[in-house]
């Protein structure tokens, strides 16, 4: 299983609960390269840290205990934020999923916290009975249940690990800002590579099939037509895909409407208008109408799926917009494809 490269472990310390690996609080070139690859969806599901307890600095029986997921990105931001401190990191087994998603699934949850406290013999390790959890772990955890079952009080730290020191300096108090998730343009930019990679396979297949089938016309099959007409259509398809995956996330707050599917439809329509008025789309009315259905449909679908990556959509809300959007997307895709084929055979 991946992540055999454990350069972040820089030693071993002896404790009353046995030997414990000590971790570095700076990210190595290998760590940063790993993060970059994960952002681009390489090995993303295999980027794990072994669950258990780790030392930061030289912790003693009074040191703080921070809880994290066994997704390496979660672990990396935490250990980086603890630079200069003496503390423990207790890593839960979240199946390699980040804190917030794992909390939503329940793998970052009450029973895993309670069991892990037992496995690592936390009671032998520290005198106090407090553990600090990331606030975004709260959807999976009941603090009062953890207390009842393990004796440990859960303190919810800030949303972002970088705020941990301010949180501690303020006497374990987080400001309102530290308690809120954001979805800044930078946060969204970080998601763009993953968005591009997510459906790339499908869009490239779609483009390839379009090129192949474009060779058919009333006069039979022509490789020449396939290359010239097909490549043109394939470029439009890929442009539509890139617009949705790059500009969709980046322009999200400025796209009109609240529904993501609607925002995507508008974005697609803008691209359609640009391609039409620049003359790139050609003048065949039926083909133009086909693209007028296909491009907004594709973009609507892409942005609808971006709800999962966003930080503020609710299940009820997404269900509601899907009830309208999915049938519309399906109809526009179907009619769009039919019209496109018709335009080829005229």
């Amino acid at each position: 299983m991946g992540n055999t490269n454990k350069k972040y472990i820089i030693g071993v310390i002896d404790t009353e609960a046995g030997k414990m690996p000590k971790v570095s609080t700076t990210l190595s070139v290998a760590d940063k390269w790993g993060t970059f690859k994960v952002r681009w969806s390489f090995n993303r599901m295999d980027y794990r840290v072994t669950p258990g307890i780790y030392a930061v600095g030289n912790p003693n029986r009074d040191s703080l205990v921070f809880v994290s997921a066994n997704y390496k990105l979660s672990f990396d931001v935490l250990r980086q934020s603890l630079k200069g401190m003496d503390a423990y990191i207790m890593v839960l087994d979240t199946h390699g999923i980040n804190v917030w998603c794992a909390a939503g699934k329940g793998t970052f949850g009450t029973s895993e916290v309670v069991n892990r406290i037992g496995f690592v013999e936390l009671k032998k390790l520290v005198n106090h009975r407090n553990i600090i959890l990331p606030q975004l772990g709260a959807p999976g955890v009941s603090a009062h249940e953890v207390k009842r079952l393990s004796g440990f009080s859960v303190i919810y730290g800030p949303v972002r690990a970088v705020d941990i020191k301010s949180f501690i300096n303020a006497g374990m108090k987080a400001s309102k800002k530290m308690r809120q998730v954001r979805f800044s343009i930078y946060d969204r930019l970080l998601l763009v590579p993953m968005e591009i990679m997510s459906g790339l396979k499908y869009i490239l297949w779609g483009a390839f099939i379009t090129v192949l089938l474009s060779g058919f016309s009333k006069t039979g099959y022509s490789t020449n037509t396939a290359v010239i007409v097909g490549a043109h259509s394939a470029i439009i398809l890929i442009l539509a895909y890139l617009t949705g995956t790059v500009f969709g996330p980046l322009l999200l707050p400025w796209l009109p409407g609240r529904s993501f599917a609607f925002k995507g439809g508008i974005l697609g329509f803008v691209l359609f208008a640009i391609l039409y008025f620049t003359g790139f789309m050609g003048k065949d009315l039926i083909e133009v109408i086909a693209w007028g259905l296909l491009i907004p449909g594709i973009n609507s679908f892409i942005l609808m799926n971006f709800t999962g990556a966003s930080t503020y959509t609710s299940l009820s809300g997404v269900r509601k917009e899907m009830r309208f959007a999915v049938p519309l997307q399906a109809i526009s895709a179907f009619i769009g494809i039919v019209l496109y084929v018709v335009s080829r055979f005229r």
Binding site: G104, P139, N305, T307, G308, S310, T313, L315, V318, R319
Partner: peptide
């Protein structure tokens, strides 16, 4: 409670 994620739905 649930995830506001079209893919998951």
């Amino acid at each position: 409670a649930g995830v506001g994620c079209a893919g998951a739905i």
